[in-house]
Design a protein around this nucleic acid. Structure first.
Lengths: 344, 344
DNA sequence: TTGTATGCGTTATCAA
DNA sequence: TTGATAACGCATACAA
């Protein structure tokens, strides 16, 4: 069995004194083949352990039912859920998925996209890396007749289909919730501003303050605090201010929010009474901490499903191709113990 | 730019009044082509926005630098980390990854394997689904000259390369730790026994009891408790016994352990004083609960790296092909608050 | 209903 | 160093 060449349609044809084209037809369920020979072919195909060579088939047909997915990190909760959502849809459609991770590296993102183009995938679903610099590689996707759909972290300048999370609205809602609870000095942990998502979250924060007539206090904004450790460090810094904040919105992630909680508890600060905390993403642990952490659910799996559906939808209807280029998934504020000092 | 056929090596050849084979040679960095024409070819290739068609190349060369990965769930922490580990190695080697999830379904697992065989992948890395029934589909992988490497959840009967987690030892160590801490009535939450990993964990539990002269109490073993809810239900049942356990080893998962903790706290049982708890997998949240949960780290990313390395290693050295067919990654008991009633 | 011929884009072998 | 040609395995237009 080992080291033996795989059987081809020619092998089947030869054995049955038929022509390869007949075998191909039978295998593909064509109607132009008699029931009798069809059965015969299927039977011997099974006997000879025949498997179609998709590579040859794809080359011949000029199509590749494969979709490339590029994410910063495969093993990050948000992205692995998006992928699960994508997979759920694409599997049903009989499409394969090639997964690449950019590791938050721009250079590697380019490489991933390049290989996917070479692989002749039908589409690329992509979320840009943290140190994104330029969109040339994304432009070239379209130039090679490959559909590009961006999700979550997108390049705004590029006119592609996009699936977004309503970051600004969610952020606005979060801050407004804090205000409702009586917090007045609300600090923001912000992420790299070259990513749209963090710009939008900041925007929501700012407009909520503006709406309620509060002025922006620059000392309450801390940059690039998106891990537990950085969140903790940022909190130390904020609490050392002459006028420390009474709430911290960790717009970067729940991990940063956890860092905030760490410091608060280490200092004996009462949460939510003396310090309110909100995170972002609804990681599993936010429900488990004491107090539990108010956060924002992004419906990551839903995002994935929408990305995939957008692609297939696009294939079917050509008419509204210019209309619904952007789908937005509305996130949900999950109110928990870390901000509830007045009841709901 | 749209709707235009992709440029091929023929297009380049035509433009330069050369032959396609020369273009191919130049593009592949062959030495049998003059520097001058080589430069010319590379230049016009860039001008015409040429990209190699990997499908055609793969067909011609009869090789596909692609590896298929089949896991029960993409978005489960353990598996997404394994994939990240695999990807880290395969990326360096210039291999692509096709990811499939079986969704814990045997039927779907078969389908995944089938498509991967058709895709002519070089190797399949697989962890079997929960309702695994038969290994015919796995046998056929080898029959099609595709290397199979099983990891974590494996079919023992099949003679393939395997990367395993030392489940039995870890389990043994966990139970022994409980005994050291003075617990005597140790309950076990066990998983489906058709999966090797749960059989092994049970084995470790039993041998630890045996070593310390404790007899097995069947009423202290609860089947299929591997979610938070099932873990909680199992705990209710156990605590209702005339002689309830003084410790529970949730060998299925940390989620089950969390369910145990839920019930203990709801009943006002003191952990670890009145009830010891150990989980499995070292999920992020186990560090955060109060008390934190003792658990077992499986080094999932490390497992992934080893799977990939095993494949490439196998390619290089033919000699020891029969020797190191099984790699075992030693897990680590992480002792935390939920079992520390006597200090270390 | 079946067979013949051709091409998908590339690479490998041979000859020039 | 370059060109001509065949082949990878399959699918399809056309002829029989």
């Amino acid at each position: 069995m080992e080291n033996q060449k795989r059987t081809t349609i020619y092998d089947i044809a030869k054995k049955l004194n038929l022509n390869a084209s007949s075998v191909s037809r039978a295998l593909n369920g064509s109607s132009n083949v008699s029931e009798k020979t069809k059965e015969l072919i299927l039977k011997t195909a099974k006997e000879l352990n025949y498997r179609q060579n998709s590579i040859a088939s794809n080359l011949r047909k000029g199509e590749n039912r494969t979709i490339g997915v590029v994410v910063p990190r495969i093993n990050q909760n948000f992205f692995s859920n998006v992928i699960a959502g994508i997979e759920e849809v694409t599997y049903q459609k009989g499409y394969n998925l090639i997964i690449c991770q950019s590791n938050e590296s721009y250079q590697r993102e380019i490489k991933c996209v390049d290989t996917l183009i070479n692989q002749h995938v039908s589409a690329i679903f992509l979320s840009i890396s943290a140190d994104f610099e330029d969109n040339e590689h994304l432009k070239s996707v379209g130039e090679h007749q490959i559909k590009l759909i961006q999700f979550d972290r997108v390049d705004d300048e590029l006119d592609t289909f996009k699936v977004l999370c309503g970051n600004e609205e969610a952020s606005f809602e979060a801050v407004e919730h804090l205000l409702t609870q009586g917090y007045r000095r609300i600090a923001l942990l912000e992420g790299p501003q070259n990513l749209n998502i963090f710009r939008q979250r900041k925007k929501g924060y700012l407009s909520a303050l503006a709406k309620h007539g509060l002025s922006l206090l620059p000392e309450l904004i801390v940059e690039n605090a998106w891990t537990r450790e950085l969140g903790a460090a940022a909190t130390e810094k904020l609490l050392a201010l002459p006028q420390p904040p009474d709430a911290i919105f960790a717009s970067t992630s729940d991990f940063a929010a956890l860092g905030v909680l760490d410091v608060a508890q280490a200092r004996g600060l009462k949460v939510p009474q003396e310090l309110g905390i909100i995170g972002f993403s609804n990681e599993a642990f936010t429900e488990i901490t004491q107090p539990s952490i108010t956060t924002i659910d992004q419906f990551s799996k839903e995002i994935g499903k929408n990305v995939a559906n957008l692609y297939f939808q696009k294939l079917s209807k050509t008419a509204s191709s210019e209309t619904n280029k952007i789908v937005s998934i509305r996130p949900k504020l999950i109110i928990r113990g870390s901000t509830l000092r007045n009841g709901i």
